[in-house]
Design a protein around this nucleic acid. Sequence first.
DNA 1: ACCTGAACACCGTTCAAGT
DNA 2: ACCTGAACACCGTTCAAGT
Lengths: 252, 252
Amino acid sequence: MDRDRGAEASAVPVPPWRTPPKAVNVRQPLSQERIVQTGLQLLDAEGLDGVSMRRVAQELGTGPASLYAHVSGKEELLDLIFDRVLGEVELPDEPDPQRWIEQVRQIAVSAHRVMCAHADIARVALANVPVGPNALRIAEKQLQIMRAGGVPAQVAAWMIDRLSLYIVADAYEGSLLRVRSREGGEQALAEYFGRIEAYYRSLPPDRFPAFTAHVEELMSGKDEERFEFGLDILLAGLARFGRADGAKSPPG
Amino acid sequence: MDRDRGAEASAVPVPPWRTPPKAVNVRQPLSQERIVQTGLQLLDAEGLDGVSMRRVAQELGTGPASLYAHVSGKEELLDLIFDRVLGEVELPDEPDPQRWIEQVRQIAVSAHRVMCAHADIARVALANVPVGPNALRIAEKQLQIMRAGGVPAQVAAWMIDRLSLYIVADAYEGSLLRVRSREGGEQALAEYFGRIEAYYRSLPPDRFPAFTAHVEELMSGKDEERFEFGLDILLAGLARFGRADGAKSPPG
DNA sequence: ACCTGAACACCGTTCAAGT
DNA sequence: ACCTGAACACCGTTCAAGT
């Protein structure tokens, strides 16, 4: 009998008066995983302000109330997205006492780059202490490297905190400029800095002698350059506490 | 004729059927000054989230739309409040080349203290580049001091930027903890850190050997202590660029 | 157990209309 | 010129009711 060969039967058009099954995959059940993933997509597409409970729910084809079964609230959702992003940070396999400063530096640069690649997600880390698995993984590695480099435990412990504050703050600050340039184009960003520079130049030199004399220097340098400048200042300050031979790549 | 002696006439009760004049001083006209002042009061009383256009308007006995005649929007209002706060920062009169690092340090500490004294206002400085008169006054002084200390112009210019980023970021981070403790009492803050510490101790030592071995060091130190630790690391890194004799107070 | 519609108590900003 | 009521287009979270 032919009527049991389902595969071939489906090649024939379905009679239009039959109610089609509800769109496939829309009934894929909600989960924390799916919510975080959707939040991350929204973050990348529209920035952190685009990640609202309502928008995430909409994207998942449901109402905002449904999210609360899988996530305690907006804060937890953002924490989860942040830690997922931190998962992209690359770490060296083993601490190398000969190159401890370079290793600390590489992790810092990688973390900075990763956060910068995801809009203004860094704001989340400023708002609460990150305790997700990836945050811990990174901090653990930094601590191991500094200890291997001979840095005293108390200094190393506080330095992790100070370093991550610096990285996160710079990433956040820079991301706001990037948001500005995405919204108004490259041109808007240039205009913004142009206005500031013009304002600096217009200041009265008698009250702002140093400022007006150094507008050039104040405005120079790209994001990355300034970040690494500050990072190297911090690392130079740290170097005194550890093995001297680990400080092979001193800044200017 | 008695009916012209207004002063004495007002001692007699007004006939109750007369409409009384609208409450005195409520008709004090709106001004940017009054709006900023009210915003600052709200900031101190309820934190930055308490400063909404609607709340400020309410406090002034008017509707939110009325504020837009004196302030372009919320962002400008917050900028104005921030710069007013910066007015409290103390600056030395003259740059002293013998003590340049100490002077840079004092300004940094003062700015940090001032921001910490006004809830989470520091968030404003992370969101946009401060260009108010008081921000400029402080930056100008820092620049003068570093130049007097022999720091090259490019290093000094970038250092102002990095220093203020560090100060603002720490003040903001700390303010969020202070908000937490104000809302839930000293006890809530202790509980929060207690939870974190307990979580650190509960981590598997094989995967987090350094972390679990140094929970004590990771949790130690008050806000101010940690801030000054990082500040001194930065200043030690900076010291190499200027006059050696200005670095009289090196950190640990 | 999981999901949802509707409601609550808010936002910043705009605009036509009033004085 | 200055001020305002009402509206617009949003928020995060809660809760009773549904399946």
